[in-house]
Design a protein around this nucleic acid. Structure first.
Length: 523
RNA sequence: GCUCCGUUGGUCAAAUGGAUAAGACGCUACACUUUCUAUGUAGAAUUAAGAGUUCGAUUCUCUUACGGAGUACCA
């Protein structure tokens, strides 16, 4: 076991947390818990322009919904706060100054326009403009300007940034837990801005300073940070700090086509890319969430864990605790994983079976009431005998029994109505295709006979129903199909649903007879 | 363009220098004595290409192709 594990999930509050971000958080959480470590949420809000109202709360809510709350966070401070970078603002400057004093960084006065011009100019010539050893002396900074000039500019309050002085002709040896050793030639690196003219650090500086101050032991983040790893290594070295371990997670790719998963893919293919529903405070646009779409958090966590990781065994159903137990960064894949909405549904179907029926019934009840209201206000007729449990007052126990009968083929709670409406309301029509198949010559007489048999049963249970009807069928050599199919159609309105005898028992004798007689009438 | 990372069935993936290359999703068929979208069983389908090392390579090396990420005073 690795000692003193402290990991952080460090999103920027620029909007709802993307599913890829949730996976990054999950892997951090799993790793932390696996090693009895600490899982920290740090909000990286150094870019004031991109701050979005409500995003931080969303992130916290999402983490909680998944069952992986942070041990230390802005709302639950530990001994390493504050946990918002905007609130740590005051501490970054001194570190930037320290780097200047040690010769690892320098002031740069170039305007955004100048830089932009150089970049475009280079591009036009088919070259790439890199601000580094190659040309830094040709630009306006404390390396090219005299000490007096620099002081004058600083005193005059001119805008400046602080850049890292990337060394020349060195080979860096970087280590990544997932990818192994990586070598980088420092000549291709640029002098990244560490400190912005607005007085805020960039991600690079803030990230290193905070990770150091917060005693982060392992940095687990997305692959998009891999190119920055060289800079981060150099920063640790420049400060003389111990370098944490790094692990760069593979990306989550679109289900079809190219590139990484984006919001648009979800809209297009009809699945959410966010854990929770999000309403954009500016545009008012609403993005769907897994929670609102009826996914269970266990299902989402389980399938997310399997995107880029696997236990190496045939087990694929893992609770959060089981994941903590089995998780290992060494078993994380290097290559990007395509997101599979079908597999997600499969997981949800699985976890549906594990849900308690009474809980599901509670979630289903409002849907039933809503549907019945629509039916009632829609058509006046065919209202008698609608709810066998009595009027519109649906009995929760009855719903619970219905759930027990249909949940094995349900993926979402929202599937329940389609699978069980006939338990609550009589069919008003018969599926056309099914009618052709089930209502045939002689069916009328058969159903009439069924009515009398059912009527004759006093002890109305599934068992007696079954023995009496089946006994009648076999002793008269009628054929199950000729009886069961039209019977089902009469009860349900389609060739669907659980066992016919279960349905009859549930809706009760009177309602069963009524429905069969209704079918007889139209035949 | 440049830098870095990657490439096992349609998708997620296991294995690893040595057998017929696991398993899952999806798909197809069959079964459940007869509803199925459920369940069960079966089936089709894979080591990107080319060199090299080796007795032997999916596994190691190189080249090519393809994919991805980064290349901001964004994170």
């Amino acid at each position: 076991m690795i000692e003193n594990v402290r990991v952080r999930f460090a999103p920027s509050p620029t909007g709802p947390l993307h599913i890829g971000g949730v996976r990054t958080a999950l892997f951090n959480y799993l790793f932390a818990k696996k090693h009895n470590g600490t899982f920290i949420l740090r909000v990286e809000d150094t870019d004031q322009n991109r701050y979005v109202e409500g995003a931080e709360q969303y992130i916290i809510d999402a983490l909680n919904w998944c069952g992986m709350p942070a041990d230390e966070s802005p709302v639950k401070p530990g001994n390493y706060g504050p946990y918002r970078q905007s609130e740590r603002k005051a501490m970054y400057k001194q570190y930037a100054d320290e780097l200047i004093a040690s010769g690892n960084a320098y002031y740069a006065f170039d305007t955004a326009e100048t830089l932009d011009f150089h970049r475009k100019d280079h591009e036009a010539k088919g070259k790439t403009f890199i601000y580094n050893w190659h040309n830094r002396l040709k630009l306006k900074n404390s390396l090219s300007l005299s000490a007096e000039e620099v002081k004058a500019k600083l005193d005059a309050g001119e805008d400046y940034v602080i850049r890292f002085k990337s060394p020349q002709d060195e080979t860096l040896h970087l280590k990544d837990i997932i990818r192994g050793d990586i070598q980088i030639d420092t000549n291709v690196l640029d002098d990244k801005v560490l400190f912005k003219s607005d007085g805020m650090p960039t991600y690079h500086l803030a990230n290193i300073v905070d990770d150091h101050l917060m005693e982060i032991s392992h940095v687990i983040r997305g692959e998009e940070w891999l190119p920055s790893l060289a800079l981060h290594y150099q920063l640790y070295q420049a400060f003389g700090w111990e370098v944490p371990e790094f692990a760069h997670l593979p990306l989550i790719l679109k289900p079809t086509g190219k590139g990484k998963l984006s919001k648009r893919d979800g809209d297009k293919l009809g699945f959410p890319v966010f854990p929770l529903e999000w309403k954009d405070p500016k545009t008012g646009d609403v993005s769907r969430g897994y929670k609102e779409d009826g996914y269970f958090p266990e299902a989402m966590v389980n399938f997310l864990a399997f995107l880029g990781w696997n236990p190496g065994t045939e087990q694929e159903i893992f609770s959060l605790d089981a994941l903590i137990n089995a998780f290992d960064l060494e078993r994380v894949n290097k290559s990007g994983a395509r997101f599979d909405p079908d597999k997600t549904k499969w997981f949800n179907h699985h976890y549906m079976q594990e849900q308690a029926n009474d809980e599901l019934a509670k979630k289903f009840l409002p849907i039933i009431n809503e549907k019945l209201n629509v039916i009632q206000s829609g058509s006046e007729e065919s209202q008698d005998g609608i709810s066998p449990a009595g009027g519109n007052d649906i009995d929760v126990n009855y719903v619970e029994m219905v759930v027990a009968l249909v949940k094995e083929r349900a993926t979402f709670v929202s599937d329940f109505w389609g699978l069980s409406h006939f338990f609550f309301t009589a069919p008003t029509s018969y599926d056309e295709k099914a009618s052709k198949k089930a209502f045939k010559e002689g069916t009328k007489d058969i159903l009439k006979e069924v009515v009398s048999i059912v009527n004759a049963i006093d002890d109305f249970t599934v068992e007696t129903l079954q023995t009496n009807l089946k006994g009648w069928i076999t002793s008269n050599d009628i054929g199950f199909g000729k009886v069961m199919m039209p019977l089902r159609l009469a009860l349900v309105g389609a060739l669907q649903g659980p066992d016919v005898f279960d349905i009859m028992y549930m809706i009760g004798k009177a309602e069963s007879v009524a429905r069969i007689e209704k079918a007889v009438a139209i035949l």
